[in-house]
Amino acid sequence: MNSHLPLKKKPRKTLRQIFLIPVALFALGLFGLILALVETGWVDMISTLAISTSLLAIIWGRLFKKRPQ
């Protein structure tokens, strides 16, 4: 029925769109790595969480994201 409709082209992303999440993860990871060096005790948990965001991003990408065919 819709076979004659033109294929919808996906718009090209800007550098800002491409690197927004990676830069945020980079900043969080770096913050966590340095925080653990500067402080100790319960702050270690915060730094571990900050570094863990990269793993959470992978889990989110694999489990919750809609996969393209």
């Binding site: 996906k10 992303k13 491409i18 927004l20 990408g61 694999r62 994201k65 996969r67 393209p68």
Partner: peptide, 13 residues
Amino acid sequence: YAPFMRKLDFGTV
């Protein structure tokens, strides 16, 4: 990374 992700969303596999 940039040229490969021009048309893909972050986390796409």
